[in-house]
Design a protein around this nucleic acid. Structure first.
Lengths: 199, 199
DNA sequence: GTCTATAAGGCGATAGAC
DNA sequence: GTCTATCGCCTTATAGAC
């Protein structure tokens, strides 16, 4: 958290980001006007420029918060495990963190997952490094697991990684809170990948 | 194919759709102006209205072509199988069809896969039925396979379905034609789901 | 910090010439 | 079938009052 001495200056900024994330995730970057963001906060569009320099700066901040949130949630979940955990337990923990971030901060994370490819090139460029850091985390876990002999040697780890992340990310388009909790889903999804579905 | 008696009337329309699909898939619906579409065809924006009534009509047509293309490709692949094929062979064939449609008609299909949630509500509504028809096809194949005892009874088919489709759809964001062919990838991905990765 | 007012340009869509 | 020209509206962003 940043150092803050005054009473409220941070809060409006945060509200703007929250509302922006919600609107971007539903209507996309180009489908959301600054007037829409302002209106949702009972403000006028011009007032936003007291807090941000441009619309691009807003979406970039939303993007970074989304990715960092996933990374932090996933790391916390994995580091909360006992040191002698199995590879499978690591994957389930990582999946729980990933899904929990998608679910709890869906407005922020979906901007980086669903809308990323359509954002202005300059914004994509600025967010690229953090995104690749996250892919690297999965690359590392999967490689470790295969090296330890917990994943068969013939499994293509690149395809496994994109498959797992693709499967997890789909949560954003189908999950409505019902009988299954986020943790249940993570366990089930990794279970499918680990054990297969064959009889 | 529609009946056509004159020489060229269909072609310009098709070119407009091709270019629109390409631009929509890269910059999104709201990020693509009619002027951009026209410019890519060395035309003026106003001329597009001879072929289409509105921008929404263009994207709706792109959307429908994308979904129908996936459905047709997948059905052709599955119906090309011998009658006595195993459930696993059916899944691999369906995955091949799905990935082939994404790859060969990526501009059209990615509009329906990546941009769908951000399209105008009226357009989403018009495309919904066809989308659900496709989900139903997978639902049916998976249920059949489980009923025949080829998928373990304890596997949650809803989660399996969203996981497979999420994993397959990821192709759009990572695949660059290299050593692996589309058919190889389909076989590998279904192999992971079927056999698991455990040693 | 938020407002009003406005600049400067982009947007989808239309009308009529060719 | 495509053009030019334009309408009316919306967009991001800025300037200055409060």
């Amino acid at each position: 958290m940043a150092i803050s001495t005054s009473k409220t200056p941070v809060k409006t900024r945060t509200k703007i980001l929250d509302v922006s994330a919600a609107l971007f995730s539903r209507h996309g970057y180009n489908g959301t006007a600054l007037r829409d963001i302002a209106k949702a906060l009972d403000m006028k569009a011009g007032s936003l420029y007291y807090h941000f320099d441009s619309k691009e700066q807003i979406v970039l901040e939303v993007l970074k918060i989304g990715i960092k949130n996933i990374i932090h949630t996933v790391i916390a979940e994995v580091e909360g495990l006992p040191k002698d955990s199995t590879s499978r337990e690591v994957m389930v923990a990582a999946a729980k963190g990933h899904l929990r971030a998608l679910h709890e901060k869906g407005d922020y994370t979906s901007t980086s997952i669903l809308n990323y490819g359509q954002l202005p090139d300059s914004v994509q460029e600025a967010g690229r490094v953090t995104r690749e850091q996250y892919e690297d985390m999965w690359r590392k876990w999967l490689t470790n697991a295969q090296d330890k002999g917990d994943i068969r040697a013939d499994v293509n780890l690149t395809i496994l990684r994109v498959s797992i992340l693709g499967a997890l990310n789909r949560l954003l388009t189908w999950y409505k809170k019902g009988e299954l909790s986020i943790n249940d889903i993570a366990t089930i999804q990794i279970g499918i990948f680990w054990d297969g579905i064959d009889t």
